[in-house]
Design a protein around this nucleic acid. Structure first.
Lengths: 347, 347
DNA sequence: TACGCTGCCTAAACCGGTTCAGTGACGACG
DNA sequence: CGTCGTCACTGAACCGGTTTAGGCAGCGTA
């Protein structure tokens, strides 16, 4: 009653050996039904709980999965994606008796070394890999380390299952929405091109405009920070301003609105604005942001589930979360008349 | 070279016993200087790294510290406090070879049971406790479980050291700033009163206004969500509107601006607005938010450091991060003239 | 010379599980 | 009736560290 009971206590109380108790508790064959029943009862009665450390030592498992965020702390702070993502992943992991080992690496810390340490010290059984880059070197590293992983977004790499949401669909919907409103000069303030989703969204954006015979007024690559978005927006307004600007996330879009208003222009009358991710914030900017829902909590839960399945030895296919959906609010409206009159489609 | 070397490998290579290697590596007395030198060299040469699981088993330590966030996932998502806080704490922990075990508990999960499980399974060696309530029942629980802890904010409970930032100073500075601008009808849209900082800030607000012979136009308690802030703001505008509103966090303030603008009123001309926490977002609302810096990353680092010291057996005093500082931007300005003319102080 | 003390080291137990080789009892089968 | 196979179970090794009891040599002291 006082000290935490061990498997040896259970064995003694049930009058069997430690080994048999272990077998019974992990329901493996070779234990008589009656005996098993008794062992389980005794264990419950004693309030036995497995010791993670003891188990870890013999199974060589950490019962934890890793998420490494290698971004500047400022960027992590500004990005509303992580909290719901973590919450979603956490929920699944706790239910499975696992733990989430979170690492936030500043630019001064070596990401590869960190993964190596994670693997060498067996602190995690697998990892969730986000912020993918094309030909991401981490994939080879993980393969070398033998660390199971799930990627957020598809890499085309067959070694690791991906959890993906068709964010391109959201970008396409955004572009079509703006074109339908009569916009012809549409700019994109994008995330880093060396991130898979940054590149994919930019490509989808171009393709969607091309459907209507248009090309982007500009595609500006930023590091996703609102500050960079503000600078990019100033640049756009200085020379031949577009009538609509699409941003890579909602805080960046808020920064865009701020700059536009600072110039005495109105949103959406002079410039229409679109965000991305549909963070809570999108509801509370003035005007409220048209954005694209990506539902980070669902991503988190799906990624964690996939990784657990993978660790359980199952064959895991890529998981498709479906298309990102456009949410129209008041930051988008008809293109300013006159300067670039919409050609009526004769259909 | 192939398999990860264990302490036994090091012992064999150095021609000594396992025990002595352990002594040398943890530099404990009783090892001849020359021998110790040799052992360390051999260990380095073999690339030996301690196995966390092996060590955990014998030291009965988890080498991890816990942070339990018992808030609705939506609230966590909206709250920009956590990411920088986590990043700050992480940085310290990684340097110390520890890990952060994060739990996000939805309302459906029993917080007490979770702490009990964390302690019983020895998944963490200590915890950081946030979102304090007066007479917080978790403190008795942690004492009962014998789990070392550091609290964010002071409870007056001598059992656990606190990391605190004088947020009251920020509230006071905010109130004075508004009073100096001539505001006399000032409302507070506060966080939950049953949270220590919610109550403290409300009290500080009242006290600061009382200095100038004023009382709050209203103090409305909300759950910290922007939605609740929006509702509260509508209520304020409906009846006898204040000339200034102070919010409990920046997203809430953004929601307030949104509602005010929706009514055709201007910020700061008709109503001045103040946020709290000085999130990145505060720079990008229109107008940019006057807010109070709380520097969550410093909180995180300080809390982690304090907890590590505590675990190392040191006597840890409360850590004071100093006063929260007011950052004046453009969401505050002079009170509308006429309706409530400032009485000049004859000093 | 005998004794005790100190410094350096070894061997073995221990933490709490999992795993594996082996044992005894029992039933089926030739 | 002897042999074999299966089932249920035991005992011990093992994972990789830490810790403790104890041994041995060398020195100072009586």
């Amino acid at each position: 009653m006082t000290a935490k009971p061990t498997i040896a206590d259970v064995a003694r109380a049930a009058g069997v050996s430690k080994g048999l108790v272990s077998f019974a508790l992990n329901d493996r064959p070779g234990v008589a039904p009656g005996t098993k029943q008794r062992i389980l009862e005794v264990a419950a009665e004693l309030g036995w709980r497995p010791s993670v450390q003891g188990r870890s030592l013999s199974t060589r498992l950490a019962y934890s999965i890793g998420l490494v965020i290698a971004r500047d702390a400022d960027l992590v702070a500004a990005e509303p994606f992580y909290p719901p993502f973590l919450a979603g992943a956490e929920r699944v992991l706790v239910a499975a008796g696992r733990t989430l080992t979170l690492s936030v690496l500043g630019p001064e810390r070596d990401e590869e070394a960190h993964y190596r340490a994670l693997a060498a010290d067996r602190r995690v059984d697998g990892v969730i890999v986000g912020d993918l880059r094309p030909e991401d070197p981490r994939l080879d590293l993980l393969a070398e380390l033998g660390l199971p992983a799930v990627t957020l977004g598809r890499t085309g790499d067959p070694r690791f299952p991906a959890v993906l949401l068709d964010d391109a669909a959201g970008v396409v919907a955004t572009a079509r929405h703006l074109v339908e409103l009569g916009h012809r000069r549409i700019a994109l303030v994008a995330g880093p091109r060396d991130l898979v989703h940054g590149a994919r969204r930019a490509d989808a954006f171009r393709a969607a405009l091309a459907e209507s015979g248009l090309a982007p007024a500009a595609v500006i690559e930023t590091d996703f920070t609102p500050l960079a978005a503000a600078t990019a927006t100033r640049g756009l307004l200085d020379a031949d301003p577009p009538t609509a600007i699409v941003y890579g996330n909602d805080v960046a879009a808020a920064a865009g609105i701020s700059v536009i208003r600072e110039r005495g222009l109105d949103v959406p009358r002079d410039v229409a604005i679109c965000g991305f991710d549909d963070a809570e914030l999108a509801r509370w900017t003035v005007p409220a942001l048209t954005s694209v829902t990506t539902d980070p909590a669902r991503w988190g839960a799906a990624a964690a589930t996939a990784l657990l399945d993978l660790l359980a030895g199952e064959q895991v296919e890529d998981i498709d979360l479906g298309p990102a959906r456009l949410v129209v609010r008041s930051s988008t409206g008809p293109a300013p008349a006159g300067q670039d009159a919409p050609q009526r489609d004769p259909r």
